[in-house]
Simulated assay, not measured.
Amino acid sequence: MKSVRYQVAFVVLALASSIASAFDPSPLQDFCVAINDPKAAVLVNGKFCRNPKFTTANDFSFSGLNIPRNTVNRVGSNVTLLNVDQIPGLNTLGISLARIDYAPNGGLNPPHTHPRGTEILVVVEGTLFVGFVTSNPDNRFISKLLYPGDVFVFPIGLIHFQVNVVETPAVAFAGLSSQNPGTITIADAVFGSDPLINPDVLAKAFQLDNKIVINLQKLFGGNNN
């Protein structure tokens, strides 16, 4: 009888292990519509794979990340993302890198999310105030002031930002746990979508006057005419 119980327990553990390991892989695109036509099959992570015999060092390298970027824009920041599009060798490796330059006195990497990757940020120059917001219903705001050499982690999918709080430029580097982590900048997505979201919807969602929403949509590149 004891032997039977052991056998049953072994089968249950084996099934649990099988189920636990049979998870869906993290998507590397916004969506993939299922089709039955084999001629329209998707590529590996959206990319063809080069024959390994023909790969070179250039497939795995990038030069110029030491050069400061232009931060003269409406938010005062510039993100240089090195994903699979810039470094082909990253395909299937699940990692990417970014340099973020911040203008003095308020240069902002505005609230955004990476739907497919966790971010780990290290400050090289300047002083950054950073933070992220946890998911509903708590919506906790977790923040910290970072100095050169400090590191901070932004969990996958959560809204986060960084802002330079000193009178000199700031620079940070970030690693992301996807070859194509994606970026959704909240204000651009909400007020600059194409086509525009109905202003009545946004006015009710943000508890704003309809005219304010329309002005924000124009500011972010939309046109209600």
Score class of each variant (00 low, 15 high):
Gly149Gln: 01
Ser26Thr: 15
Pro111Asn: 05
Gly126Gln: 05
Val213Asn: 06
Val8Asn: 08
Val79Ala: 14
His112Asp: 12
Lys53Cys: 04
Ala40Pro: 02
Val123Leu: 11
Gly131Ala: 13
Gly126Glu: 08
Asp150Pro: 01
Pro115Gly: 08
Asp37Arg: 09
Ile186Gln: 01
Phe60Ser: 13
Arg5Gly: 07
Ala98Asn: 05
Gly46Cys: 11
Ser193Thr: 07
Asn36Phe: 04
Asn70Arg: 06
His114Gly: 11
Asp101Ala: 06
Pro27Val: 07
Thr80Val: 05
Lys211Tyr: 04
Asn66Asp: 13
Leu93Val: 13
Phe129Ile: 09
Gly182Gln: 03
Cys32Tyr: 07
Thr168Asp: 02
Asn51Trp: 06
Tyr102Phe: 15
Asp24Glu: 15
His114Ala: 04
Arg50Met: 14
Ala189Asn: 02
Ser96Pro: 03
Val11Phe: 10
Ser3Ala: 14
Ile184Cys: 05
Arg69Tyr: 01
Gly117Val: 04
Ala170Val: 05
Leu90Val: 02
Asn73Gln: 03
Arg74Thr: 14
Gln162Ile: 08
Phe161Glu: 11
Leu128Met: 07
Gln7Leu: 15
Leu158Cys: 02
Phe141Met: 13
Gly192Leu: 11
Cys49Gly: 10
Val124Tyr: 11
Val42Leu: 11
Phe173Trp: 04
Asp24Thr: 12
Asp101Tyr: 05
Val123Tyr: 03
Asp101Gln: 10
Pro52Gln: 02
Asp30Thr: 11
Pro38Gln: 09
Asn51Thr: 04
Gly222Ala: 07
